[in-house]
Structures are given as C-alpha cells and as structure tokens.
Nucleic acid binder design. Structure first.
Length: 481
DNA sequence: TTAGGGTTAG
C-alpha cells in the first residue's frame, strides 16, 4: 500500500525512500519484494547495501547476503561498521570460516575489532564454524562483556560438544553476580539433555521465578524441553499449562515431549488442541508427529500427516521428515514398503534415511534390504562405524557367521572404530557413568549384585533375553546361558 | 534509513 503511494508520487527515485522500502520488506519477511526494490534502485549508498545484506541474513538467505557483500566491495561504496556486522552474521549462518576470517582481517584493519558488537559477531561466527578456540581467544581478551557476548560463548561451548562446560559457565556467571537476561537463560536451558543434572535444571527454574522471567516464551519453551529431556514429563506439562502465552514452539516442544516419552496418543491429541486454538503447524510440528507415530506404531496416521503437511499446509518435507517415515515403516516391520518409499523420493536418499532403514532391518532381521541400506551408507559415509556394526548384527541374527566375520574384518581394515556405549544416572547431584563391563565404580560389587538379582527376577517372570545381537565384549558362556 | 545472542526433531 505504502509502496504504491510512493510509486504514484514518483518518490521511488529518492534513495532514502528506497532504503526504507528495502528495510521494511525484509522486516516483514517479504525478501523477494525487498530484492526487487534494491535491483530497481538507480542510486545506492552504504545504507542501501547494508539494508539488503542485513535483510537477507535475517531472512536466512545467507549465501545471497555474502555474495552481495563481496559484490559491494568490488564497487565504489565502502562498507561501514553495520555492514561488517551483517556480513559476519551471514558467515555464521553459512559456517563459512574462510570468508569469516577474511572479514575479521578487514575489521582489524579498520580498528573496530574491539567493539563489543563486532566481538560478539566474531565469536558467534567462529563458534558456529566449529572453531571454538578462536572464539574463546576473543572472549578472553575482551575488555568488556555483556549478556550477548556471554550467551554467544555459552552456546559456542554447547554447539561444539562441551555441554557440561556451557552449564558450568552459566553457573559461574550467576555465582559471580553477573546480570543474566531471559535470552541467556533460554540458551542454557537448551543445553540440558539426558546426561545433564536435573538438580541444576531445577535451580535454573527457581532463578527464572526469582527474576520474573517466567512469562518470557523463550524461557517457558526452554523449561518444557529441559524437563522433558531430563525425564520429568509431568513438570513439562505443568510449565506448558501455566504458560500465559504459547507460540508454535511451545506446542511443538510439548508434542515432542509426549513423543519422547512414548505417549503417541497424547502427542496426537495435543496436535488436535493446537489446531483448535488456531496455531499453524510448522515443519518441526510434523517431525514431532511423525516421531510420535513411529514410536506408537501409528503408520496410517503418520502417512496421513505427511500428506496433509504437503497438501494442506504447503510445507515441503525435508530429508529428516522422510527419514522419520522410513523409521516408522521400518519399526512396523514394513521393510519392503520402506524401500519402495525411498525409491519413490524426489531425491537420492541421504545418511539419515539409509540409517533409519538399516536400523529397522537390524531389528527385524532382513538381510536383503539391510545389505541395500548398508551399501548406500558405505558410499555416503565411509568412516561411519554404524552401518558396519548394524550389518554385522543382521548377519549375526541369522546365524550367518561367515558374512558377519567378513563385515567386522572389513571394518577393521578400513580402520573405523565404534565408540563404546555409555549410560549414566544422577544420585544426590552426582552423575555416575558406566561403560560395558565397567568395574571401575567404587560400589561395582554391590551394583553387579543388584543386577544379578534383577536378572533372576526377570527370568522368573518369564523374560527371555534377545541374544541375537551379542557381538562384542561378552564371552560365549554368557551367550549360551 | 542499515545493528551482535536465545527456545522446537534426531
């Protein structure tokens, strides 16, 4: 409407008007209109360029954003502080370490590398590109810190596999009396998972109450996920039901929580409520629903969701959605259907899809389809030990010891190593972790005694162990027992 | 007129 008025009055030639139009189109998410205005502008200044570079980044069109930044540098317009900030965002999104380093160099030349905003953007770029060392170096030498730069480094820890350090960093900041904001709290809540302490999660919840962050939707959603991942479904429900305002992430998180805890029925019921409330589902809603159907054996319902996702809501399925469907068909024992489904996909199956199929074959012992899935995976990820182990499991379940031995030999020849599985439990704020045949725990004798007692009780109740997949570590005595 | 971080699946 405003654009039409501008056009009628001939104001579109005014550079300030053009800049404002570009900015507002991108802020509304209308990227194509923003681009069109930019393309048609006869004159462009640094604000025009910065508006489009930043607008594209904010709409996750990182590649185009970076391309325009490079194009700008070849022209006559000099980038400014905000242009560098926006181009660093594009590098983070693209995980473009090389380009990010180059921009770091340019920023250094200009002498603005110590600006707090530039430092946060640089740290974010380095940690999202997987170079936590570079991010940490900037953090350590920073003269000033604020909530944003601390959140960046916290998330950097978590995304680079240092979840425990991320949580400890937060705890240290709070103990030191540092001001934390709701964004930082939601970031730390996102780090919690099965192997983190529920006790700490509850302490963060009490901090949320003390600081009155409870009405913040990001924080509320973070709490739902924290409790659900730590095994406390009832607490997730409590947080969800008390939320003053919910968005699609809140609903998705709660649907996922039910799915995670094996309650497919309630996950689907919640989806119905979500629709009744008029909340539009997203691609993640359908991932959670497909996951719920997969674990609840609701194949027909799952196929219906895939159909409505594309036909009713016009959401294009991603490879993750297809992998969920394959997992669902596979778990239900419909392996040939899963293979046919994959063959009918508009793209070549990727690692997730093939792994889902192979996993299902190892449960149901289908050598023919299993071999097909494993061969695909060998090509896609030669260093991944999972397909070798799963294929060996399939041969083992069918008593095809020669093929099984050959698979393990091949695995050793290529030099792929399977990581040892681990389990853990938290008692009195201390996490105890165990690997297979672990005797290192100080109370190992008592623990094994309890295990033996439990095993006897299970046997008395008629439990028969599934011995098909016993491959490593256990000797034959155990297997023949 | 252009601005750094955050929650959802696996």
């Amino acid at each position: 409407m405003i654009h039409s008025l501008v056009f009628l009055n001939g104001f579109e030639r005014e550079i300030t008007v053009g800049n404002a139009l570009v900015t507002s189109y991108f802020k509304c998410g209308c990227s194509s209109f923003g681009r069109q205005v930019f393309d048609e502008m006869l004159e462009r200044n640094v604000v025009t360029w910065t508006a489009i570079i930043s607008g594209l980044s904010q709409n996750e069109l990182f590649e185009d954003s970076l391309r325009l930044f490079l194009k700008m540098r070849h022209g006559m317009v000099e980038p400014n502080f905000l242009t560098y900030l926006s181009s660093l965002m594009a590098c983070s999104g693209l995980q473009a370490l090389g380009e990010g380093r180059q921009i770091h160099g340019l920023v250094w030349k200009l002498g603005i590398q110590s600006d707090l905003c530039i430092e946060s953007a640089l740290m974010d770029m380095y940690s999202k590109c997987g170079s936590l060392e570079d991010a940490w170096r900037i953090f350590e030498s920073a003269v000033e810190l604020d909530e944003v730069s601390m959140t960046v480094i916290l998330v950097g820890f978590a995304q680079n596999g240092f979840e425990e350090e991320a949580i400890q960093f937060f705890v240290k900041m709070v103990k030191a009396g540092t001001e934390v904001d709701p964004n930082m709290v939601s970031a730390v809540l996102g780090v919690f998972g099965v192997d983190t302490s529920l006790g700490l999660g509850k302490q963060i919840h009490s901090l949320v109450i003390k600081r009155s962050f409870g009405s913040n939707r990001f924080v509320g959603n973070g709490l739902i996920n924290m409790y659900s991942k730590c095994g406390e479904l009832q607490d997730s429900i409590k947080v969800f039901s008390k939320m003053p305002q919910r968005n699609s992430v809140s609903w998705n998180s709660m649907i996922a929580a039910f799915a995670r805890h094996g309650d497919g029925f309630r996950a689907l019921q919640l989806y119905e409520e979500m629709r009744q409330e008029g909340v539009e589902p997203t691609d993640v809603t359908f991932l959670s629903l497909l996951h719920a159907c997969s674990h609840g054996g609701l194949v027909d319902k799952g196929m219906e969701f895939l159909k409505s996702m594309t036909e009713v809501f016009r959401i294009s399925p991603r490879t993750e959605h297809y992998a969920c469907v394959v997992d669902m068909l596979g778990r239900a024992g419909l392996l040939n259907e899963a293979k046919t489904f994959i063959e009918g996909l508009p793209m070549k199956p990727d690692v997730l899809i093939c792994q889902a199929l192979l996993g299902a074959c190892s449960i149901h012992g289908n050598t023919e389809v299993g071999k097909y899935a494993a061969e695909q995976l060998f090509l896609l990820e030669p260093d991944n030990p999972v397909p070798h182990v799963l294929l060996a499991n399939i041969y083992s379940s069918e008593g095809r010891w020669k093929e099984r031995a050959w698979t393990i030999k091949r695995m050793k020849e290529i030099g792929v190593v399977k990581e040892t599985g681990m389990s853990w439990i938290e008692i009195d704020k201390k996490v105890h972790s165990f690997v297979v045949e672990d005797k290192m725990h100080p109370q190992a004798v008592i623990i094994y005694g309890v295990l033996a007692g439990l095993f006897r009780l299970m046997k008395d109740e008629g439990y028969k162990p599934d011995k098909r997949f016993i491959l490593y570590y256990l000797d034959q005595d155990v297997k023949h027992n």
